[in-house]
Computed example of a mutant assay.
Amino acid sequence: MSAGTEQGVVEAVQFDLKRMHETWMEFIYPRQRSAEGTVLGKWEPDGGASLVFYRAWSTLGTPIVALIYPFVLFGYFVRFQTRRLNTTAVSIGFAGVVGLFVVLWGALALLAKFQFSGAFDAGGVTAIAAASVVGILSAALSFGAWRLGGRVTTVLFAYPFAMTAIFLPPVVAGLYSEAVGSVILSGSDSLQDWLLANGPAAIDDVKTYLIRNFDLEGFSYVLMWFGISVPLGWLLGLVVTLADFVRPTPE
């Protein structure tokens, strides 16, 4: 990496951190964010107790900004990828997006029925076909929610539907095929163990309830991945929103 590029990265990080800290200050005080170049300038108290509290609030914001900034960086990455996908979606339109998922998950259902029917348990082909239909509908709903516009609609619906369209059919295929399941479902078991140890499910009462009432087998895998895909979609939407707030880009 050249020195010029390194300097540019450092300056970009400094800009982001400064803007985030100014936003933190603006929760309480006026004229903080991007106010230095304005006529009035950045507001600061004259002195006394108000100045002490101002500086204390500023100091408190420093570690909070440092903790949030990795999510902003992740949001930049997700935003870059989603906008590439958005460009593709715009170019092929609604029919193209739905057609792409029809080909993708329709091929999975056809392979299950005609090519590998012997490798699937009873009812597997029907379940995979149903999951493929749900995946295709989820892709259509995701595109529709995105085209409606609005940050809330996109975060609440477009991202979760997109995650469901991607995750659901292969997980259902894994339920009825030992070969597919050995990859997808064994990974689900490992993920379940990690979530029980480190995620929200690590809370004793929640963990005890889940262990007593749910066994990770059969349809529980579908529920687990549906329970992951929706919050994951919300998380991706929120980090992109955070990235847009810190460093807006032209649509």
Rank of each mutant, 00 (worst) to 15 (best):
D46N: 11
A158K: 01
I184V: 14
G227D: 07
G233D: 03
A95I: 14
V9Y: 12
G41R: 01
V134Y: 04
V10K: 14
V180P: 00
T82C: 00
A107W: 11
E6F: 14
S50Q: 12
F27D: 05
G96C: 06
L210K: 04
K207H: 14
R83A: 03
F120G: 00
T164D: 08
G4S: 09
L100W: 05
I28V: 15
L111W: 09
V152T: 13
Q14N: 08
L195A: 11
D205Q: 14
T23G: 12
T62N: 07
W24C: 01
V90R: 15
W234I: 05
P45F: 12
R83M: 09
L195F: 13
G227T: 04
G124D: 06
L111H: 04
N213G: 05
W57I: 09
M25D: 07
G218N: 01
A89S: 13
F71T: 01
L156F: 10
F143T: 03
V222R: 07
L238D: 03
T153L: 12
G4K: 13
L104F: 10
N86M: 10
R19S: 05
I136E: 02
G150D: 08
L168F: 10
A35I: 03
G61F: 10
G124K: 03
R19C: 00
G199D: 13
G181K: 11
V72S: 01
L195P: 03
L67D: 07
G4C: 06
W225L: 06
V102K: 03
S58F: 05
F120K: 01
A66W: 12
F167R: 02
R55N: 15
G93A: 10
L17P: 06
L40Y: 11
S117K: 09
S142R: 00
Y221C: 03
V97Y: 01
E44R: 10
A145K: 05
L110R: 04
Y159T: 01
A243K: 02
A202C: 08
R147F: 02
L111F: 09
P45M: 12
R147Y: 06
K113Q: 13
V230G: 04
G174M: 02
F157D: 01
F27I: 12
A119G: 10
T59D: 15
T59F: 12
S190I: 08
D121P: 00
L17N: 03
L196G: 06
G144M: 06
A12C: 11
M224G: 11
E6M: 14
I211L: 13
V180F: 07
I184W: 13
W43P: 07
A202H: 11
T241W: 02
E44N: 02
G123I: 06
Y209G: 02
E251A: 10
A129H: 04
I228E: 00
S58G: 13
S142A: 15
F167Q: 00
F27K: 13
T153A: 08
L67Q: 05
G106Q: 05
P45L: 08
L141G: 00
F71W: 07
S229C: 09
A131V: 07
Y159K: 03
G8M: 02
G149T: 04
Q32D: 05
D189F: 03
A12H: 10
N213S: 15
S132F: 07
S58L: 11
I92D: 05
G75R: 02
P30R: 08
V52F: 14
D215H: 14
A201H: 13
V10Q: 12
G96Y: 09
Q14W: 05
A119V: 01
